[in-house]
Write a protein that binds this DNA or RNA. Structure first.
Lengths: 258, 258
DNA sequence: TACGAATGTGCGCAATACGCACATATTTAT
DNA sequence: ATAAATATGTGCGTATTGCGCACATTCGTA
């Protein structure tokens, strides 16, 4: 919840209500009334009113004294995805890349300082570790797709990005030096792809390329990820990248007509 | 927006705010301030306050005098999906079924009177017609997955369903007679699958099966859809259904350990 | 049974959100 | 170019919405 109480045009009840919805997260998928109140730093009476409103609207149900979200909550964001017309164009090609590489293939766009997953083709076998869904967010600066998308920014935009981004070392390999990152992103722009090795999570490597529309505007980035022990970085460049680039090219050929 | 103004525990501002978010739909993905006000039957001053709040929270941006949703809005529903732990178990098998059948494969659950899509493996080629995403909703009574899920209901629950469901003829083939539907759903329960032919959309046929967990509880339904002209219903039963059932069985074998 | 914890409820009122009128900016028509 | 129409921005008085409090009720535990 944000502190904008001095702004007469800021609707505090809406802010608090959305915060209540978002407080049903991975740590607390289900909560009692009191837990909602505590987690959202509000009185029990207020929490109750928010929950009863959300229940009345169908977004929340109560199961054995615990409130939890319903599928109806997907309505709130669903239309955003539906408005991204290119998704249905790129997914068959992502699927083909996934098949050839035996890896999950994902697409994302930039939002604030994160990448947001907008499509995902699961791999043929069990997921290794990360549980990523449409809507999942990861920091842009240390992910392959993020770097591809940042590579599409102007210098001013990139400066603004680093003003806001919180550069955390997720692993011993994470690069958090702004100068280094600037250089890497500049190189990414030149290369037209990005390989990130163990910067977000140990033992995980990924390679990403952009997908552009007719005007050359980057619509999104797509990537595949893999465990590091499986192969060497040179193999990523020689075996994985061309498949991904081919998928992007084929998608782009169709997007030209859109 | 619902009319619950007589209820002291109903927070009208939250209701209105969520309605504003949802008004950014397929018909109006972008809107001016005045269009938002008109579409939501509220004053311009109110609309402005809602939009400025959502903008301040990052859920909406303004591009050339038009407001539109940002990817951040996916945060609101994202956690619901993440809380469905079985999705990452079933998607590799859905993917295999999709590969074998050369069709998109989807999973859904019931919410109110609709099915809601919770996972989707796109087909290898261009989508035929329907643009379905995670979060998309379709009426349960005339969809194969819906019938499978309704087949899992008690008689009381099914009666309650038909009290609320709006039975619309989407095509000349749509069955809207409650007695007939009861019979069909009962048969679906016995069969363990459902084939729906041109009841939601002309020339589209689909077959669905349930996926159950260890306790026999139905977690979701999965389906594949196809154009009718491609094959006969008997072929659906003999060629498509077994593949889908195998995918479900394999997923269930793993879910036993969850 | 008594006590503690959790939730439900009514109510006075604090403060939040409202709409109105006017101001400003932009677009359209003459 | 000017006037009119349309869209948006702003300040403010106040209607009404949402608040927290105190008490009531329910449920679980010792």
């Amino acid at each position: 919840m944000t502190d904008s109480s001095s702004n007469k045009n800021f609707l505090k009840t809406l802010d608090r209500g959305l915060a209540v919805i978002k407080s049903f997260d991975g740590d607390t998928p289900q909560m009692t009334l009191s837990e909602v109140a505590r987690k959202n730093s509000m009185s029990r009476a207020s929490a109750r009113r928010f929950l009863l409103t959300l229940q009345s609207l169908g977004y929340v149900i109560k199961v054995d004294d615990n409130f939890q979200l319903t599928a109806k909550i997907l309505e709130v964001g669903h239309q955003f995805l539906s408005n991204l017309n290119f998704i249905e164009v790129i997914t068959p090609f992502m699927r083909e890349a996934s098949r050839l590489l035996y890896k999950a293939c994902s697409a994302s766009i930039l939002n604030e300082t994160d990448i947001v997953y907008i499509a995902r083709i699961p791999s043929q076998h069990q997921i290794l570790s990360v549980n990523l869904n449409v809507g999942s967010r990861l920091p842009a600066y240390c992910t392959s797709m993020g770097r591809v998308l940042l590579g599409n920014m102007t210098e001013n935009e990139l400066d603004a990005y680093f003003k806001h981004a919180e550069l955390i070392s997720h692993t011993p390999h994470t690069i958090t030096d702004v100068k280094k990152l600037h250089k890497i992103i500049k190189q990414t722009r030149i290369d037209g792809y990005s390989i990130v090795n163990q910067e977000l999570e140990e033992n995980l490597c990924s390679v990403a390329v952009p997908i552009c529309n007719q005007q050359g505007k980057v619509l999104c980035a797509i990537n595949v990820g893999m465990p590091v022990g499986q192969l060497k970085i040179e193999e990523v460049t020689s075996e994985y990248l061309p498949v991904l680039q081919e998928a992007a090219s084929k998608a782009e050929a169709i997007l030209v007509h859109h």
